[in-house]
Every structure is written in C-alpha cells, then in structure tokens.
Design a protein around this nucleic acid. Structure first.
Lengths: 201, 201
DNA sequence: CTAGAATTGGACTGGTAGGTCCAGACGAAG
DNA sequence: CTTCGTCTGGACCTACCAGTCCAATTCTAG
C-alpha cells in the first residue's frame, strides 16, 4: 500500500497493469490467467504479488481504473468543448467512432462484470467515472442554455442524466447485439430534443 | 437435445433451472457452484449432466432464458397497452418499481456477464429480448402518433431505439451506482419529449 | 564499501469445482 | 412378468490456477 516503490518498481507495476489490460482486450476475461500476464510482461509471480498484495482482484481493479480513464480521455477534447451544436455533433461522432472501433469487447464493462460489485473500490471507480462524465455533459448543456440555444426552463441535470443513460444503454446494446444503431439513436434523439427545445430558431 | 424426457424428467430439469436462478439471485454469480444447485434442488451430479450435457454453460443459458422472459412479463400488461399518456406513465412506474425492487442484483445482466458472448445461443437470447422489447415500444409510440398525440414526422423506430437504450443504461447505472435517478430521467425525458412533439396540445 | 531495503525468480502447495462413470432404482409398454 | 430405456445417487478424478515461500540479486543511501 505505502507508495514505497522505486522508479524501477513503479515501472514494473505499470507494465503488469498494461499487460493485464492488453491480455483482457485480446483474449477476453474468460481465459484471463495471472500466468499469461506474467509471460507477456516477462515478470514473475513474486513481482505480481509484491505490487498487488491482494492478488487478482487488486490487479483487475487497477485495470478498471486504467480503462475508465481511457473512456473519458478518448472523448477529449470534444467532451469538454460542448459549446455549439456543431461541437455537440463532433463529440457525438467521436463517441460513435470510439465504440465502433472498440467493437464487441468493452474492456471496462468486462472487467467490472468480473469484479465483486460490493467492494467499495470497484464501486468507487464506476461511480467516479459516471459522475465526471455527467458533469461534462451538464456543463455543455448548461452552456447552450445560457446561450439561449436550449429552453431556459429545461432541467439540465435531468437531461444530462438521461443522455448519459442513453449512451450507456446504447453501448450495452451494441455489446449484446453487435449493432450500433441504438447508440446513434440515443445520441441523436437527445441532441435533437435539446435543439428543439430552443425558444426561437 | 432430443426432447426424449418423460414428464418426471422435465420436472426435474425445470427444478434445476429454477434452483440455479434462485441461487444466483440470492448469492450472486461469483459464488455460483454447481454443487450448491444440487444441494438446493435435491438432485445429483448425474441428473444435472443428464439434462444439461454441456454442463454449466448450458445451465446458465437456460437461466438466462428464464430471466429474459421475466423481464418482459413483469412489465405486462402495461407494456402492451401503451395507448395513452396515462398508460405510458403507468408503464413507466411499473418499470421503475420493478428495478427498484430488484435492487443491485440484475440476474439477467449477471448471467450474461458470465456467458461467453460469442456463443450464438447467448447472443440469440439477448437479441431476441431486445427485439421484442423495442417492438412493443414502437407499437406504443406509433399508436400515439396515429392518434395525433405525437408529431407525424417523428421517426418512431429511432425514438423507440433511443428509449430502449435509455432504459438499459438507466438500469446499468443503477447497478453501478445504486441510484435509480438515471432510469427515471431516461424514461421521463423520453416521454416528455414525445408529448412535446405533438402538433397542438 | 557496506548494510538494508526493494526487487526478482520460480518451484511448490492446496483447495476447488467442473466433469466422468457406473451401478442400481424406477417406470412404461407389451 | 419381463424388458428396455429413462432416471438417479454419489464416489471419484483431475486439471487448473491463485496464492505462498524463500533464496538470490540488485538497487540506494550514507
């Protein structure tokens, strides 16, 4: 726990996390073995347990953190610049492209499905990701509202929550059915409705 | 495979499936053991493998089918009677109540997370559930459109897809954060926007 | 240089749980 | 009653893999 790692140690630790993430991305969580990670990263059991005393669970949590960060950073800079309708469209396209590229394997979703949801650590990573995501959406919608492009009486927080839900569901449906149209529909319908709420065109 | 089961045999098979489903609901997939199912259902290994030659995977798939059916039947009769705004509201309330009652354990989601998504069987169950669900939503929205309560130019299929995505995401967010507000927001925003699209109040 | 801590290698352990097998009980049909 | 197929009990097998342990080595500080 105590961050008493040397530079070399931290590098090894990071190598293990990234190797584990790659292993999951390439081969799936079902066949995820600690030994495979060791082979791929050229490390040994003792190293893995040295840096992750809680073993597999702790490693998966670290992978989850890595993937969670990536989810948001992959949407940047668009996500933080939702200041016009074209900007919304650019962000929408980025999201669709990201998940289209990712295909049927959402590493984050996969990792969480394997983690015990009841542990505070796993819960925290998920909650934090969603909180940040929604907060960016809220900021964007609120910006448009102040610019008069969205109805003044619109409940921004609720709209952002609904949009976030739509995105999550769209991604989930893509994972289940292999079809990205639900994600596109969720994004497009949400944006359309925001625009339609504007007082005067 | 071949339905060469006697009445007694089918009963045993069903007992096993229901016992497995209960086991998952009560104790979670993480600690789901074949032996526990046997103990609970008073059956033996040979019986389980007699009725599920493919073992655990096949049993989980049967549980998934059971839970998938329940998802839709729990929404009836409201889901099939989306013929007025109050009816939409009643259905909305039913969905929220259902997932509120279910709490943090969505058996279907849990089972699927454990199943190999690449197998056609697992894929089929999920796809079929979503297809049916969306088809009911489409029917409801289309009904309102014919009644003039929804804009004639609205893309019904797309609206239904977005609504379904919102629901799925709302449920997922509830599982992650323990908070049902996203599900409520997704439902309410979707319904509000449908109503708002109406030509004249 | 030296001491102590951090890092590393890899053999070994141990519990688990999915799956196999066969002998025997049961039940339907003739 | 006999026969054949279905159904059942439960002992046994065994592959697997997370986690342990300790000795060896390499850093870092003074």
């Amino acid at each position: 726990m105590a961050a008493t790692f040397t530079r070399k140690g931290s590098a090894t630790r990071q190598r293990i996390v990234e190797g584990a993430a790659a292993e999951i991305r390439e081969r799936g969580i079902a066949v995820f073995r600690l030994d495979d990670v060791l082979a791929r990263t050229k490390t040994s059991k003792s190293q893995l347990f040295h840096y992750f005393p809680q073993g597999k669970e702790e490693l998966l949590l670290a992978v989850a953190r890595l993937e969670a960060d990536k989810v948001l950073s992959d949407q940047q800079p668009m996500l933080s610049q939702l200041t016009s309708w074209p900007a919304f469209q650019a962000w929408r396209d980025r999201v669709v492209a990201r998940y289209l590229a990712q295909g049927q394997e959402c590493p984050l979703h996969i990792v969480f499905s394997q983690l015990d949801q009841r542990t505070p650590g796993a819960r925290a990573v998920q909650t934090e990701l969603m909180r940040k995501w929604q907060s960016e959406l809220t900021a964007g919608i609120r910006h448009m509202q102040r610019a008069g492009e969205v109805a003044a009486e619109l409940d921004v927080e609720r709209a952002a929550a609904a949009l976030l839900a739509g995105i999550q569901g769209g991604v989930l449906l893509m994972l289940m059915t292999g079809d990205i149209t639900h994600l596109e529909a969720a994004l497009d319908v949400a944006i359309d409705n925001l625009r339609a709420s504007a007082p005067a065109a």
